[in-house]
């Protein structure tokens, strides 16, 4: 008698459980897309925006699940930063990209294709340096 109630109940719970997952997935997909669009419309040159979108935007957007990453730098909020903060962040970007600290190793273990190529690293560094220089004028 007990089994008769338990089995459908468990099945029901399982379905709810699974459904909540797909729902979450859809939500986060949507977030990523909107974040991507805001980013491109920002003041990044197209070649830079492309790299940021693929290689950095999984964590460095204000909708990110990683508090640490989004606090450190959210690319969709770039325009909110003043020149001083931009300079600081640009200098950090050069450092972490050159040293290969970003994207982080743990992340790359899951997504090996997110690793920056030498070409991409150069593009980012050049852009960061030029942007900083432009503040001096």
């Amino acid at each position: 008698m007990k089994k008769l109630i338990l089995t459908p109940l468990l099945t029901f719970l399982l379905i709810v459980f699974l459904a909540s997952f797909t729902f979450q997935k859809q939500n986060s997909d949507k977030n990523e897309k909107t974040a991507g669009i805001t980013m491109v419309s920002n003041e990044f040159p197209e070649n830079v925006a492309k790299i940021l979108k693929v290689h950095c935007n999984d964590c460095h957007v204000s909708t990110s699940k990683s508090d640490k990453a989004k606090k450190k730098l959210s690319f969709d909020k770039w325009n909110d930063l003043n020149m001083l903060k931009k300079t600081g962040k640009l200098n950090d970007i050069i450092e972490v990209v050159k040293e290969g600290e970003m994207p982080p190793e743990k992340y790359l273990n899951h997504y090996p294709d997110k690793k920056l190529t030498e070409e991409q690293t150069k593009t980012l560094v050049k852009w960061a340096e030029e942007t900083m220089d432009s503040f001096k004028e």
Binding site: K71, K72, L84, K85, G88, K89, N91, D92, E95, M132
Partner: peptide, 19 residues
């Protein structure tokens, strides 16, 4: 100098965020 700026910005952000 640029690294000093980076550090100062980090100090600002970390202290502001209470981290």
């Amino acid at each position: 100098d640029k690294e000093k700026i980076s550090n100062l910005v980090d100090i600002y952000d970390e202290v502001e965020g209470g981290d």
